[in-house]
Design a protein around this nucleic acid. Structure first.
Lengths: 352, 352
DNA sequence: TTGTATGCGTTATCAT
DNA sequence: ATGATAACGCATACAA
């Protein structure tokens, strides 16, 4: 309830002096400094942040716009952002459920005057116009963008590399018929992982067009449902790449229910390395996505000066997505004794 | 870059009229309304939120102060808060890593003028003075508070009930030597769960002081380490209550490494019902904590009018924490065939 | 229906 | 070293 004016009155100085004391200006005598502090303490004075940012044009708040908050991926991003923000004395203003470009835009709009910079994940393809308008207002970093936007820094996951490495791993283990459960079409991560899958098959001597590909939507249940379709295909796939761990989990359940042994009868790999992955039976071979670092580095990009004065200048960072080999391909010693064939490593089939 | 003044100039009206149009005031002619909208659109005008809240004293932002952001518990709380906030047209200002009362206070202080209300989890016992000072500034809801604060609404988890129900369940299954791995002393949840454990033992005819209690800190590794101590105790415990699922997971790993069968040789129960719980081997019997609802209801409390004009008036909500029976006690058909003794139900030992 | 003028709570630019 | 005062960008009571 107390304003700077009240403090000034009690300390019998001007509001300018109060402001100086509170902002540690050196041009204040010890005596008045003491009086002001005493008054501020007595009144339990808390400065009004809105008023401060109106004059200083700084808010010490970083904005975050996400399509969703569900699951480790998003929550770890936020944790990474918040930690990095805290390190530079900032708080984090969040708004989620923004998939469509219009929703992203209006959320960003309502952040005008309340943030010093914005971190946005806008999965839709048509978002680049919205992005451009946002970018005029404040510093902007894109998370996992579909397309690069001129003058806009971005940070993303090496989806293509990860999927490619997964295929390489499976081929090295001797698998020749690798199925894939895809993510929702149009989703950036899903599309990139599919692309990496196809490129991997091609480079390692397999025919991408012949690969059994079944649709999915990143949910556990879609992975469960995909199993029936996969088991129906001939030749029967000897490995399945699920575009994310959730679907891999659903798949594992379905295979167990169907009496199909993993990795004995079929190998399974996922993508994301969620916390559950190592506790599954068998522990899931997957690709690690470090979403904490994704958020942390997004903040770093946001506050780092542009690489050059050129308005189109920006930085684009791609976070590595390393392969995590566990037991669901039989490539390492499984928790329980595995069938001999599963750990057997045949001659790698290298293309060319 | 454009302000309301620019829009007024282009539309050849006063800033008051622009403000009226933008806020849908009815007292504006269609013609000027059209002109103003055209000007605003042409300039791509975005109102400054700080300036708006300075005059209206509303920010459309809800603040959240948490000790940490790690794990499903916190991330689901945030998701619940954000969803509820969005429903009432608010965004969410987050700041974490605030355990000590002083840190909580200074974070709240820097939110002055930027939020319409605050949701705080302040686990420390000495926080009530800080809470009281915060409460003078804005509407406040406490998450899982240690002590009630006069005039301050709160929402918490039924920790005591949950732990009590867990003991009841174990006793009904015939377990007579129930060990506990405690959480970090001083932590509200940990303490309440310990209290429920002891009260349960007492009410069901067991001696709380004779129960093997080993320390832990809610981490997986502390659960792992606790196993050795538990196995050393005589009489050997036939059930273990880990104060949270993370420690239960560590314990399960350690028991597996030691060749101890769960639930054959010893039953294990946890608390929280994290997502992993149902995927463990064996699936973990635990208590469900609905942290999404915790956050969602916190917002509801925040915006709901006080029950009475009395300054001490407030609401206190306790969210139920229902028992989730899986297979780690042998009380339901385990995934793999279980030893007969594990599913055997002896005569319940009722006190009195 | 529209414009003028004041205030919101600060910081910052002048003076003194 | 301190004080008066003008911004900051907007909403609104009041006047016209």
């Amino acid at each position: 309830l107390a304003t700077i004016r009240d403090v000034a009155r009690i300390a019998r100085v001007s509001i300018a002096t109060v402001s100086r004391v509170l902002n540690n200006s050196p041009r204040v005598s010890e005596e008045t400094r003491r009086r002001v502090w005493a008054a501020a303490t007595r009144l339990d004075y808390w400065p009004n942040g809105a008023a401060q940012s109106l004059t200083t044009r700084r808010t010490h708040v970083l904005g975050v716009l996400l399509p969703d908050l569900y699951g480790e991926f998003f929550s770890e991003i936020i944790r990474g952002i918040d930690h990095a923000a805290r390190r530079i004395g900032c708080q984090t203003l969040i708004s989620s459920s923004h998939a469509e470009p219009d929703a992203v835009l209006s959320a960003a709009r309502s952040m005008r005057g309340r943030i010093d910079g914005l971190i946005v994940m806008a999965p839709e393809a048509a978002a680049s116009e919205a992005i451009r308008r946002i970018r005029k207002r404040f510093p902007l970093v894109l998370l996992n963008p579909r397309d690069d936007v001129e003058g806009c820094s971005s940070i993303s996951i090496a989806n293509h590399h990860g999927a490619y490495a997964l295929v390489e791993h499976l081929v090295e283990l001797g698998h020749g018929t690798i199925a894939m459960i895809e993510g929702p079409p149009g989703n950036v991560d899903a599309d990139e992982r599919s692309r990496g899958f196809r490129d991997g098959l091609r480079d390692f001597g397999l025919d991408p067009d012949a690969a059994p590909v079944v649709p999915g939507d990143f949910t556990e249940s879609s992975g469960y449902r995909a199993a029936a379709e996969i088991l129906r295909r001939r030749p029967r796939p000897d490995a399945v790449f699920a575009a994310n761990d959730s679907m891999a989990i659903g798949l594992l359940c379905a295979l167990r229910d169907a009496g199909v042994d993993v990795p004995g009868d079929v190998a399974v790999v996922g993508f994301d390395d969620v916390a559950i992955a190592r506790y599954l039976t068998p522990p899931l071979t997957t690709v690690h996505v470090d979403s904490y670092t994704l958020g942390e580095q997004a903040v770093r990009l946001l506050i780092s000066p542009r690489p050059s004065p050129d308005p189109a200048a920006c930085r684009r960072v791609v976070l590595p997505a390393p392969l995590v080999v566990r037991h669901s391909c039989g490539s390492a010693a499984p928790h329980l004794a595995a069938p001999a064939e599963a750990v057997e490593v045949r001659e790698p089939l290298e293309a060319g």
